[in-house]
Simulated assay, not measured.
Amino acid sequence: MNIKAWLWCALLLLSACDKVPAPEESFAGLGSEAADFAQVVPGKVFTFPEDHGAHPGFRIEWWYVTANVKDAQGNVFGVQWTLFRNALQAGPAQAGWRDSTVWLGHAAVTSATRHYAAERYARGGVGQAGAQAAPFAAWIDEWNFASRPGAASPLADMQLKAGGAQFAYDLRLTSSRPLVLQGDRGYSRKSDQGQASYYYSQPFFTASGSVSLDGKVYQVTGPAWLDREWSSQPLAASQTGWDWFSLHLDGGEQLMLFRVRQKDGSGYLTGTWIDPQGGTQTLHNADIQLTPLATTEIDGRRIPTRWSLKIPGKGLDITTQAVNPKAWMDLGIPYWEGPVKFEGGVGYLEMTGY
């Protein structure tokens, strides 16, 4: 799950309205009521390819891709691409400039010594940004994530492109394995009060293509991960930030877990263990031991960039280390996000609210 989208989209919504201050009762106002929008409830039956596209009845939605790639010389890179859709008001989509949807794109490349990120904004209804189910495509300006012509299914063969002043990437993503429904058959709770999203992933992508940093092009391959989520009121008023992991294990298993932190110092911790065939087991707080071990000072903040992660029931006991501890996304709203490594695999970590 990429829950940073709640922060970016909610703040974007608030900044787009004249002199409307962000509510102070929850992190970025994400616990504010959204009664006029569609609600997330248990029991949804997912339908594909329709659910790959946009869900206008909901307030917040995102398409999020990360990749852990390296070249033939062993140079390691992290790649991130995200498109956020945010509805400024409830109701059906309108044509042209009357449309009340705002889109936001984030893209980044991280190496052991460099980290570059960029963002884009667009208003809906005029074609500058959008998402469609068939043929699948999500885009903002020239940044795009789309099915390649002739793909056997919408997410079996994809092309991913984006770039900024000092970086670019062009990757082909392929997978023949099934999508994964997170949480309870796609109903992913974020708090004990019942806040939730609809959430599914494709953790089995293989990426290949090019990454460019400071004018030098690298040919790379490696595992990639897609997250899809949508919601209207995703957080409780007491929640202050989150830590989210997606991990590719060398044995073929995949692991997603997140902790949404509370004002009292506790956290809502859950995850999904995914076997090599795509079978899933939901992990609860008692199943997971997650402990920060070391921090990095960035922009006046102490960010935990080395973690102990144990899942005794799966025999997992690892220490994750940031590939680049300075992977600070210094955008309109700053946060930390970058690739991590550990004995037995690689992955991605995102942290907000520090």
Rank of each mutant, 00 (worst) to 15 (best):
A237N: 14
Y169M: 03
S231L: 10
A236M: 07
T240P: 07
Q193G: 10
T240R: 01
G222Y: 00
R228F: 12
E229W: 02
R177A: 15
R177P: 07
D170K: 11
S210W: 00
G209S: 05
S210R: 13
F204S: 11
G209W: 10
F204I: 02
A236S: 14
Q202H: 11
S210A: 15
D170T: 08
P223M: 06
S212M: 14
G183S: 09
T240S: 12
L181H: 13
Y199V: 02
P178D: 12
L173D: 13
K216T: 14
T206P: 07
Y187G: 09
P223Q: 03
A236V: 07
G209K: 03
R172H: 14
Q239F: 04
D227Q: 02
L181A: 14
A207N: 00
L179Q: 10
S197C: 10
D170R: 02
P178N: 08
L226C: 10
Y187H: 15
D227C: 00
G194C: 00
Q182E: 15
S191C: 05
L179V: 12
D192H: 10
Q195T: 11
Q195A: 10
S238T: 15
G209D: 06
V211I: 10
Y198T: 14
Q195I: 01
L171T: 10
Y200Q: 05
G186W: 11
P223E: 00
E229R: 05
W230K: 04
G186Q: 08
R185Y: 14
Y218Q: 07
P234I: 01
S191I: 04
D170L: 01
L171I: 08
Q202G: 11
G241P: 05
Q239V: 02
G209N: 03
E229M: 00
T240W: 02
E229F: 01
G222A: 02
R185Q: 15
D184L: 12
Q193V: 13
Y187R: 11
S176G: 15
W242T: 09
T206D: 14
F204W: 08
T240Y: 09
P223K: 00
W225T: 13
Q202P: 01
V180A: 04
S231Y: 10
Q219M: 07
Q219E: 15
F204K: 08
S238A: 14
A237K: 06
G215D: 11
Q193I: 05
D227S: 07
Y187M: 11
S191L: 04
Y218I: 08
Q233Y: 00
L173Y: 00
W242D: 13
V220K: 12
Q182M: 05
T174M: 03
Q239W: 02
Y198P: 07
A224H: 03
L235E: 08
G194I: 01
L235F: 12
A207T: 09
R189L: 12
R189C: 06
F205P: 05
D184P: 09
Y187T: 13
L213W: 01
S176V: 15
S208I: 05
S188G: 09
V211P: 04
S231N: 03
Y218N: 06
S197I: 08
K190N: 15
D192Q: 13
R228G: 11
A196P: 08
G222K: 06
W242Y: 12
W242C: 07
V220Q: 01
D214H: 05
S212E: 15
V220S: 06
L171M: 05
S231E: 06
Q233A: 14
A224F: 01
T240N: 07
